[in-house]
């Protein structure tokens, strides 16, 4: 590889790395472990796979962070590339949720599915829009504001404020997750479990995957918090933070869709669909 002095282009060519191969083996272990777990209940393979995967992620991100900090690799062009990459990744995530929203509408709208004469199925009492989901909506909306505050502070060079507000955002994320866990616990015990038919299926997978994305986003924010404290970010160079913020907004928007369709419309409008069944 060209050394810095010889480097005649603005791109970042990585050195050969064992991480991709290691990560792929981790994926293989996870996949095989998952199948074995689902069929036999033996879970150690799956756990081992997850552990390897997490190790891979930690090592990989450490590597990226060190490249970001060495002052050489992340040129303006490279940073643009990272931004494009992050946006594309989010676009693909949107399409992933698209599938679950499709499932929600397919099974709830008689127009799309002549099976669903009744919704929610089996006289399940749907999850309403007030109470817990409302609180969580407020939390996520607030967190969207706090992360923006942090971003502005960062751009203006106010590292301290940026650090604090990033921390607050991450805490809000954690609170959201705790509340969602409580909501699930409550639902499972009082209203419906995962196996109770199509309404719970769509409900739990859509909100569950959202919850998982909140977890990922929160982790990302926590990393940013520590990187802020360590002084990794400058007003002009903070791709990692930017990506975390974008991701957080994306998670937020998905939630708004979930809230409006699944919680709100799903609990009110569909009440009127019930009489269609005769």
């Amino acid at each position: 590889m060209a050394t810095q002095a010889q480097k005649t282009h603005p791109y970042h060519l990585s050195e050969p790395s064992a991480l991709p191969l290691f990560g792929s083996i981790a994926v293989l272990v996870t996949a095989v472990g998952a199948v074995v777990f689902m069929h036999t209940g033996f879970y150690l393979g799956l756990v081992a796979g997850f552990v390897l995967l997490i190790l891979m992620f930690i090592a990989w991100w450490r590597l990226v962070i060190s490249e970001a900090n060495n002052g050489v690799d992340h040129t303006e062009v490279v940073k643009t590339g990272l931004r494009i990459g992050m946006l594309l990744f989010i676009a693909s995530e949107v399409m992933f949720f698209f599938a679950f929203f499709w499932g929600w509408f397919h099974s709830s709208l008689p127009i799309l599915n002549n099976v669903a004469g009744m919704w929610p199925n089996n006289d399940i009492e749907p999850m309403g829009a007030s109470g817990i989901p409302m609180v969580n909506t407020l939390i996520l909306l607030t967190s969207s504001v706090t992360v923006t505050v942090a971003h502005h502070a960062l751009v203006e060079g106010d590292r301290k404020t940026a650090t604090n507000w990033t921390g607050i955002t991450a805490v809000l994320g954690v609170i959201f997750l705790i509340i969602q866990a409580y909501e699930y616990w409550h639902l499972v015990n009082h209203q419906f479990g995962l196996k109770d038919g199509i309404y719970p299926s769509t409900f739990y997978l859509a909100t569950g995957f959202h919850g998982f994305h909140v977890l990922v986003g929160t982790t990302f924010l926590i990393v940013c918090y520590f990187r802020l404290r360590a002084g990794h970010f400058t007003p002009s160079a903070h791709i990692g933070f930017e990506a975390a913020a974008w991701y957080w907004h994306f998670v937020d928007v998905v939630w708004l869709f979930l809230y409006i369709n699944v919680y709100w419309w799903g609990s009110s409008a569909f009440g009127h669909l019930k009489p269609l069944v005769q």
């Binding site: 099974s107 099976v115 299926s201």
Partner: peptide, 13 residues
Amino acid sequence: FGTAFFEPSGGGD
């Protein structure tokens, strides 16, 4: 895991 997305018996399709 017992979901019913494609299971008519659970309201899926």
